[in-house]
Structure formats: structure tokens, C-alpha cells
């Protein structure tokens, strides 16, 4: 039983999706570094960006995680942010995109 997560996305966005997901992986690394120096401002910005763009691409889950990261960064809660990063990594690793004309 694979825990593949299937998402259907408009084929117009086919060229953009791989880079978008890669940037989220990069975000995870950036956020981890930011946590070590307590730079919650950067984390808040990245979370905010994810929240605003995720669902636009078709990834509601990324928007949801982004919103949570943003809120937890404002509250400066490291533990929860780490949990969000885990969720994000899991999602990106297991997501499978099917492109259709929407």
C-alpha cells in the first residue's frame, strides 16, 4: 500500500509544478537554518508565501501547511514548526501529480 498522494492539476501548469515543489524543499532547508538562529521573521515570510501560492498551483495541503507555519512562526513555536516541516517533506516526497485539462 503506497502512501502516494494524488493531486489533479491543470495541464497548463505542467511546466511550473516541478520547480514549485523543489522550491518548497529548499524552503524546508531555509526554515531549518532559520530555526537555529531564531530568525522567525524569515520563517513567517516563507510560510505566508506558501499559504498564498500553494492552492493556486493545486496543492491545498501546501497552503494549509504554509498557514500553520506562518502562525507558528509568529508565536515562535519551534516544535510545531518542525512538525510542519515534516508534514511538508512527507507531502512533497509522496505527492503524485496527474495533469488534466481543467
Amino acid at each position: 500500500m503506497s502512501d502516494k498522494i494524488t493531486v489533479v492539476i491543470d495541464k497548463e501548469l505542467r511546466d511550473l509544478v516541478p520547480d514549485f515543489l523543489q522550491r518548497r524543499i529548499d524552503d524546508v532547508e531555509t526554515i531549518k537554518s532559520a530555526l537555529t538562529i531564531g530568525d522567525f521573521r524569515t520563517i513567517e515570510t516563507l510560510g505566508h508565501n506558501m499559504k498564498g501560492s500553494g492552492a493556486g498551483y493545486g496543492f491545498r495541503e501546501i497552503s494549509r501547511i504554509g498557514a500553520e507555519i506562518e502562525a507558528e512562526a509568529i508565536a515562535r513555536r519551534t516544535e510545531t514548526i518542525m512538525a510542519c516541516l515534516q508534514a511538508l517533506e512527507h507531502f512533497v516526497k509522496h505527492v503524485h501529480v496527474e495533469y488534466e485539462s481543467l
Binding site: E12, L13, D15, L16, F20, S53, G56
Partner: peptide, 14 residues
């Protein structure tokens, strides 16, 4: 300011 959103809008208006 978000690169992701810039690309998205560009794609929408393609």
C-alpha cells in the same frame, strides 16, 4: 513579491 505567484499569474494569462 512571491516568485511562485508571479509564475502562476504569468501562466494564467498565457
Amino acid at each position: 513579491d512571491s516568485l511562485d505567484n508571479q509564475l502562476l499569474v504569468k501562466a494564467y494569462l498565457k
